[in-house]
């Protein structure tokens, strides 16, 4: 399974980004291989419709889960249509790695 996390930097130890549409990067973590790759969010420079466009990117990367701070209504509709599970409400005080651990551990429990 692939999990997308909105991130302020290009690594697992970068801080999470609360913003979805305009986050600088997505860290895409693959639970099977335990590897990750980083994609730049084109929506950051976009002025209108950044949220749905970011959703498109997450869908393109085949992620099934998204960890982020806040997702707008239009982007949420797109993610819902593509059956991506959105876990929102993450703050920016934690790293991508910690967010992933929190999610995966909670899930196991």
């Amino acid at each position: 399974m692939k999990i997308a996390v909105t991130s302020q930097g290009g690594s697992m130890d970068a801080l999470l980004s609360e913003r979805f549409g305009r986050c600088p990067y997505f860290v895409i973590y693959n639970t099977e291989s335990a590897k990750f790759n980083v994609i730049t969010n084109i929506g950051e420079q976009m002025q209108g419709g950044a949220g749905p466009k970011a959703a498109e990117l997450v869908i393109k990367e085949n992620a099934q889960v998204l960890l982020t701070g806040k997702v707008g209504d239009k982007a949420k509709d797109v993610l819902d249509r593509a059956n991506i599970r959105v876990i929102d409400g993450f703050g920016e005080a934690i790293s991508v790695r910690v967010a992933l651990e929190e999610y995966l551990n909670n899930k196991i429990e």
Binding site: M46, G48, P52, K53, A55, I59, K74, D77, V78, A82
Partner: peptide, 23 residues
Amino acid sequence: CVDVCEFNALINIKFDIVIIEEM
């Protein structure tokens, strides 16, 4: 269609195209 839309009104979700009419 998504590529030619300057207003991000079309979103490709692989098995369908979502239209955001407000945009």
